[in-house]
């Protein structure tokens, strides 16, 4: 299953890419995070502390147990600072 994965703000900077296509067998967002962290240091630096990260699946905020079936786009970003 291929998913578009997007990164924003300091997470984007640590990983060094704004987006990429990931082939994953993970069933949940948490599984996808673990797969990414295992890739290399950049992902570990960006995604290890889940309390500092928010996640959206197909542009809707979800939690880390959200299932990835039928999801096409996952985004990782810090807590938002709008307004």
């Amino acid at each position: 299953m291929k998913i578009d994965v997007l990164y924003f703000a300091w997470i984007r900077e640590r990983i060094g890419e704004p987006r990429e296509r990931i082939d994953t067998g993970a069933s949940t967002v948490r599984g996808l995070v673990n797969q990414l962290i295992a890739r290399d240091e950049r992902y570990a630096a960006a995604l290890s502390d889940l309390s500092a990260i928010r996640v959206a699946a197909d542009q809707v905020l979800v939690d880390f147990d959200h299932e990835l079936e039928h999801v096409r786009e996952v985004a990782f970003f810090p807590p938002m600072t709008g307004g």
């Binding site: 703000a9 959206a56 905020l61 985004a75 810090p78 938002m80 600072t81 709008g82 307004g83």
Partner: peptide, 20 residues
């Protein structure tokens, strides 16, 4: 809008981009 709209602010100083 502060906490649920996906915006991220970063400070820009005289030396360029600073802290998020």
């Amino acid at each position: 809008l502060k906490s649920r709209a996906p915006f991220w602010k970063r400070e820009i100083g005289a030396d360029g981009p600073g802290a998020w």
